[in-house]
Computed example of a mutant assay.
Amino acid sequence: MAKIWTPENAGKIIPVIKVRPLLPPPPSVGARLQPQHMHWQLGRYKEDLTFGPGGRGRRKRWVVDQEAEQHNLVLNQTYDTLMAQYGFLLGLWAAVGTGSTLPDPAQTSLAAEVARTNINESAGTNTWSISRVADGVADITVVREFTEAQVGNKNLAEWGFAPAQNPSSNLMCRELFRDGLGNPVVITPASDQRLRLIYRWRVSVGPVIPQPVSINIDGIGVRTGELFLRKYAPINAFPWNVFGSEFGDIALLHGLMMGGDIYRGHVLHSADVPPNYNNSSSYTSGGFYKGISYNSYIQGSRTRTTQPVTWLSSEANATIRLIGLGYDGYPMGVKLDPGQEFTKTNLYKLTIGEWTVTWGP
């Protein structure tokens, strides 16, 4: 309560109490990339005879002569530069070298790279796999093999992974080869041996539990709702979705980080969409779509923002209950709370401001 000014209290300090409504924060989504482990194997292929309904044949069998598993270090440039170019697919090329310099987050390349490959003998080039670990969390795994000609009789001491072929300063991680006890070792493949690297990194996005948020809509005012991600998104709605329809949340953040085309981009929807991470419904009617464009990425910011988009007076004239990104399979949106919906008419335009995604370790 505020005291009223009167001549009797002139010159006195009068306390004033301001009451403001408590509103949830604006929408914010984030992504993380963390190292997991690398499994190296030194071995060779041997031919075996096989017998079956088709007769006798031959097959190659991988025989391991030496192996170990170890952890690794993700470099700073992964977060500052590479994720803005390649999203989550950062380790499609394996590199090995002869340098023995200890790894440091500020490094960008191997000390002395001698070979780089994207070959998986059994699956082809540039192959990788993804597996769900938990809600919003997935592991990406690659298997890469260096041939006898690439590494035979060379003293290999270091390794790393990169998103591109050119042997330059583009590594996402770097480490020394280590034995099972964590001690640095030098691997010298014989002329008939190959080196296989199996590397896994973990990505996560959030929030996966719907979060209260508020949106300030120009000309309408503040509206409250729930920000949600969806695990499943119909694959036809994401032609760029290399992860598959069951990884809609991962794919969305992957695309946003790179400034990619998220199909039609922004969506206004009249459907009463349940803000549920496991909701796999496809909403093919009642949606109004606009393309997506981005502000230029500022190196080192670890943040990407979209540009505002405007629906003209002749567009999206309906009661709006959801604001999101995507198409009928949009994997992210803000479901407006009951009573917070608004009706757009042909009397005005509607501008939706920027969306922001941040990332880091």
Rank of each mutant, 00 (worst) to 15 (best):
Arg200Gln: 13
Gly300Ala: 07
Leu176Asn: 08
Ser109Glu: 15
Trp62Ile: 00
Ile217Phe: 10
Ile140Lys: 03
Gln66Lys: 13
Pro275Lys: 06
Gly360Glu: 07
Asn317Tyr: 08
Leu33Gly: 04
Val96Lys: 04
Gly152Thr: 04
Val29Asn: 08
Val334Asp: 06
Met257Asp: 04
Ile140Arg: 00
Ser296His: 11
Lys60Leu: 12
Ala316Gly: 12
Trp201Ser: 01
Ala106Trp: 10
Trp40Phe: 13
Tyr294Lys: 10
Met257Val: 00
Ala2Lys: 10
Gly182Trp: 00
Ser293Met: 12
Gln70Glu: 15
Val203Gln: 07
Leu350Glu: 07
Asp192Phe: 14
Arg132Ala: 13
Gly339Arg: 07
Leu227Phe: 11
Gly286Trp: 04
Leu197Met: 15
Arg132Glu: 14
Glu67Ala: 11
Pro26Asp: 07
Asn170Ile: 02
Phe51Ile: 14
Gly221Tyr: 06
Ile217Met: 09
Ala233Lys: 04
Ala251His: 02
Ser314Arg: 12
Glu121His: 14
Tyr294Leu: 08
Met83Lys: 03
Asn236Ser: 11
Thr108Glu: 09
Ser168Trp: 08
Ala316Lys: 12
Leu33Phe: 09
Glu315Gly: 02
Arg223Trp: 01
Lys60Met: 12
Val203Leu: 04
Val203Ala: 05
Ile119Arg: 13
Gly333Met: 11
Val29Gly: 03
Leu156Pro: 01
Gln299Glu: 13
Lys335Thr: 06
Ala111Gly: 15
Leu347His: 13
Ser245Asp: 11
Trp40Arg: 06
Gly87Glu: 01
Ser109Cys: 11
Thr224His: 10
Glu47Met: 13
His71Asp: 14
Trp311Thr: 00
Ile323Thr: 05
Pro189Glu: 03
Trp159Thr: 02
Ala111Leu: 06
Ala237Gln: 00
Pro21Arg: 10
Ser169Gln: 14
Ala190Gly: 13
Thr351Gln: 15
Ala162Leu: 01
Pro167Asn: 07
Val143Pro: 00
Gln77Arg: 14
Leu325Cys: 10
Asn9Thr: 02
Pro239Arg: 05
Val64Ile: 15
Tyr297Ser: 03
Gln340Pro: 01
Leu82Ala: 02
Pro21Trp: 04
Thr108Asn: 01
Val357Gln: 02
Leu92Trp: 05
Ile352Asp: 01
Asn278Phe: 11
Ser191Thr: 13
Val273Lys: 08
Asn346His: 09
Gly265Phe: 11
His269Val: 09
Ala94Tyr: 06
Ile292Gly: 04
Asn278Pro: 03
Glu315Pro: 02
Ser214Asp: 01
Gln299Leu: 11
Thr303Asn: 07
Met1Gly: 11
Thr305Leu: 09
Phe51Arg: 12
Leu252Gln: 00
Leu227Thr: 05
Leu73Asp: 09
Gln107Ser: 02
Ala84Glu: 08
Ala251Ser: 02
Arg144Phe: 05
Arg194Ser: 04
Val205Leu: 07
Pro24His: 06
Trp40Leu: 00
Pro7Asp: 13
Gly300Val: 06
Met1Lys: 07
Asn317Val: 11
Glu246Asp: 12
Phe342Val: 14
Gly339Phe: 05
